[in-house]
């Protein structure tokens, strides 16, 4: 789980070009959207594609996205529970 969280932080920084952030700057419970990392709707699409491509998870219900992408902690837990690759 800890390794997965570090992996997610690195992927988010790289895929979303968060030039000002380093892995250690992101706390597991920081909000990804809004006041936290400040991600937006285009980033949400990038994250959905990343879950599908890297972990074999398709999010069929967009309403669940808000909970899944709340923080690194919630994302990592969701991936642990649902990953197919």
């Amino acid at each position: 789980m800890e390794n997965l969280k570090q992996e997610l932080k690195a992927k988010i920084i790289e895929n979303l070009n968060l030039e000002d952030f380093k892995v250690e700057d992101i706390d597991d419970n920081d909000s990804l959207f809004g006041d936290g990392l400040g991600l937006d709707s285009i980033d949400a699409l990038e994250l959905i594609v990343m879950l599908d491509k890297d972990y074999g998870i398709k999010i069929s219900d967009p309403k669940k996205g808000k909970t899944i992408f709340e923080s690194i902690q919630t994302m990592a837990q969701f991936i642990m529970d649902n990953k197919t690759k």
Binding site: N15, I42, L45, E46, V49, D52, K53
Partner: peptide
């Protein structure tokens, strides 16, 4: 690379 799958919007936009 991804066989026409997993296309994200940023680079396209």
């Amino acid at each position: 690379d991804n066989n026409e799958q997993y296309l994200t919007p940023t680079a396209f936009i």
